[in-house]
Amino acid sequence: ELIWEQYTVTLQKDSKRGFGIAVSGGRDNPHFENGETSIVISDVLPGGPADGLLQENDRVVMVNGTPMEDVLHSFAVQQLRKSGKVAAIVVKRPRK
Rank of each mutant, 00 (worst) to 15 (best):
L54G: 04
D43K: 11
A50R: 04
D28H: 07
K82H: 12
P94A: 10
N34H: 07
L2H: 09
L2F: 14
R59K: 10
I89A: 01
N64L: 01
A87I: 11
T66Q: 13
A87N: 02
I3R: 05
N57M: 12
K92T: 07
G18S: 14
S74R: 11
K13G: 06
K92Q: 13
T37M: 06
S15V: 12
P30G: 07
V9L: 10
Q6C: 04
R17G: 10
A87H: 02
S42R: 08
V91Y: 08
G65K: 08
R59N: 04
E69L: 09
V90D: 08
K85R: 14
L2M: 15
S38L: 01
R27I: 13
D14K: 05
G65D: 06
P46L: 11
S15C: 11
S24Y: 04
G47D: 07
P67E: 11
E5I: 09
P67A: 07
K16C: 15
D51F: 09
H73Y: 09
G48H: 03
T66E: 14
K96W: 06
T8I: 07
E5M: 05
H73R: 10
G84C: 13
V86M: 14
E1G: 03
V63H: 02
L53C: 07
P94S: 14
A88W: 05
L53W: 07
V60Q: 03
V63E: 01
T10C: 05
V90S: 10
V71K: 06
E33P: 13
V23Q: 02
Q79L: 10
V40T: 13
S42V: 11
N64T: 01
F19Y: 07
S24P: 01
V40W: 15
I3M: 13
I41T: 01
K82T: 09
I21Y: 01
R59G: 00
R17E: 15
G35E: 09
I39G: 02
S74A: 14
G48L: 03
V23Y: 06
T10L: 06
S83K: 07
N64K: 03
H31C: 07
F19M: 04
H31D: 15
K92C: 06
K13N: 06
V60A: 02
I3D: 08
E1S: 15
R59S: 03
K85C: 13
G20L: 01
P67T: 08
T66K: 12
N34W: 06
L45K: 15
K82Y: 09
E1Y: 12
D51L: 04
S24G: 15
I21L: 13
G35I: 04
W4S: 06
G35V: 03
K16H: 14
V23S: 02
G18W: 08
Q79M: 14
F75W: 09
D58K: 03
R93E: 01
R95P: 08
I41M: 00
R59A: 03
Q55A: 15
V90C: 11
T37E: 07
A50N: 01
D58P: 01
Q78A: 13
E33H: 11
E36W: 00
K85D: 12
V44T: 02
D70S: 10
N34G: 10
Q12W: 05
I41P: 02
V86C: 11
G18D: 14
E36G: 10
T37C: 12
V86N: 11
N34A: 08
H31T: 09
S15K: 09
L11G: 02
S15N: 09
V71L: 03
R95D: 06
Q6H: 10
R81V: 13
L11I: 11
P67R: 09
A88N: 12
K96S: 11
G18L: 06
L80V: 09
R93L: 01
L54T: 03
K16D: 10
L2W: 09
G84E: 15
I39R: 02
G52I: 02
V77H: 07
V91F: 07
G20T: 01
G26A: 02
F19C: 04
I39H: 03
T37P: 07
S74C: 12
T10M: 10
G26W: 01
F19L: 13
N57T: 06
G47E: 12
N29F: 03
G47V: 03
G18C: 07
G65P: 00
R81F: 12
Q79F: 11
D58T: 00
V61W: 05
N64C: 03
S74Q: 11
K92A: 08
I3F: 13
R17P: 04
V61A: 12
I89K: 01
A87Y: 02
Y7C: 11
A50H: 02
Q79K: 08
A22N: 14
H73C: 09
T10K: 08
E33Q: 15
H31M: 15
V91W: 00
V40M: 15
Q12F: 13
D70E: 12
T10P: 05
L45D: 15
G47I: 00
N57I: 02
Q79P: 04
S42D: 15
G65S: 07
S74N: 15
G20V: 02
D70F: 05
Q12I: 06
V91N: 01
R27P: 04
Q55G: 04
M62V: 09
S15E: 09
V44F: 00
P49T: 00
G84F: 07
G25Q: 02
N34C: 15
I3A: 08
E5D: 08
H31G: 07
Q12E: 08
N29I: 15
D43E: 13
G48D: 04
Y7I: 13
D28N: 06
A87F: 02
E33R: 08
L72Y: 12
A87W: 00
E56M: 14
L11C: 04
E69G: 14
Q79H: 13
N34K: 15
N34P: 06
L2I: 12
T8N: 03
G18E: 15
F32H: 13
L53I: 13
S42P: 01
K96L: 07
G47Q: 08
R81E: 15
